[in-house]
């Protein structure tokens, strides 16, 4: 069931996920046409949807802002636009850090940190600056397709360091959340992106896509104009039940990014080994973090149990033993 709509206001809107948007262009020609924005807002109003608006760095016209204010929404803005939208979710690129002295002005909001592969060794340091000033940080790794054994090892090492930092903050009144370490602690079932199921995207060309990544990376895979019955071919392949690897997996916090799936494995329902490995590094880091919290007592007893497992990619489990028909029917 659709719950919200993503609207990419401009081709140069910030990316908030794995994909790359087209960086800052000039004038207003790359903005979504006002009529398309209006159609998107009306669609949201008719279907009880909230809207996440993805903003570019430059200023929008008043007519755009007026339409946006006409619907329940969240603004997701790039670091350069933070001053205009103090309540927005802020996207910080790891490349912003060398010049981002203004980080000191952040106060308890939600932050998305997009970390380049080459900045992976700086992860702990970056989070060390962000976490004390944020209510929640969503870490997004970019260039995932280039990750290999070296990066996996480094990521494991960095998360261990971050875990120590987080634990030090956990005694506070409202310790910050970090998606890749704290989400799994409270999840008892899959909590994925669910593009195409819980949300759709309206792109700057006024057309529907499964998510913004498809607009930027595979623009021909559009779902067409804004209309009530959105045609999604083989829609079942977006569902967990029809994903042989994911449906037996308990890395419940995993994004299960269908665009990465489509790009790397050619199938919407099949994750790449990079996505599985990274999610399992996070799962294991969460498990170890959970043990530390439980050992320290306090409210940690309410955390879900995360069992120790012997694999780091559920693909190996599925190849060795396919799920039975009876188990499938229970899903």
């Amino acid at each position: 069931m659709l719950k919200y709509l993503l609207v990419v206001l401009s081709e140069s809107s910030t990316s908030f996920c794995h994909y790359e948007s087209k960086p800052g262009k000039g004038p207003a020609k790359d903005l979504i046409p006002l009529k398309s924005l209006e159609n998107a807002v009306i669609f949201a109003l008719k279907n009880n949807l909230k809207v996440n608006f993805l903003y570019p760095a430059r200023k929008l016209g008043q007519a755009y802002e007026d339409l946006i204010e006409g619907v329940d929404h969240v603004k997701i803005v790039p670091f350069a636009a933070r001053a205009r939208y103090p309540e927005a979710i802020l996207v910080i690129e790891s490349s912003d850090f060398p010049v981002a002295v203004e980080l000191r002005t952040l106060r308890g909001g939600n932050i998305i940190l997009r970390l380049r592969r080459t900045d992976l060794p700086k992860l702990s340091a970056c989070l060390g600056r962000l976490l004390p000033r944020a209510k929640r940080v969503n870490l997004v790794l970019t260039d995932v397709e280039k990750y290999g054994p070296g990066e996996f090892t480094e990521y494991r090492r960095q998360l261990e360091k971050v875990s120590t930092r987080l634990q030090a903050m956990s005694a506070g009144k409202e310790p910050p959340e970090l998606n890749v370490l704290t989400d799994r602690l409270v999840l008892g079932k899959m909590n994925n992106c669910d593009a195409g199921l819980s949300h759709l995207t309206v792109a700057p060309n006024g057309r529907f896509y499964l998510c913004p990544a498809f607009f930027y990376g595979s623009p021909d895979e559009t779902l067409g104009e804004i209309r009530n019955d959105v045609p999604i071919g083989n829609r079942q392949l977006l569902e967990l039940k029809y994903a042989p690897i994911c449906r037996i997996c308990d890395a419940y916090h995993c994004r299960r990014c269908v665009f990465l799936n489509r790009t790397l494995t050619l199938e919407l329902n099949t994750p790449s080994y990079q996505q599985c490995q990274l999610s399992h590094i996070e799962r294991e880091a969460s498990r170890l973090y959970s043990q530390k919290l439980k050992a320290a007592g306090g409210s940690a007893a309410a955390l879900v149990d995360i069992p120790e497992i012997a694999y780091d990619d559920p693909f190996d489990v599925v190849v060795a033993n396919k799920q039975s028909i009876a188990e499938f029917k229970k899903l």
Binding site: S272, I325, F328
Partner: peptide, 22 residues
């Protein structure tokens, strides 16, 4: 590209079949 093999090696009957076939 072992990523491209993953769907073939994990493909099963139920994930590709309509209910009437299962």
């Amino acid at each position: 590209d072992r990523n491209r093999l993953r769907s073939f090696l994990t493909l099963d009957m139920v994930s590709q079949s309509p209910a009437e076939c299962i």
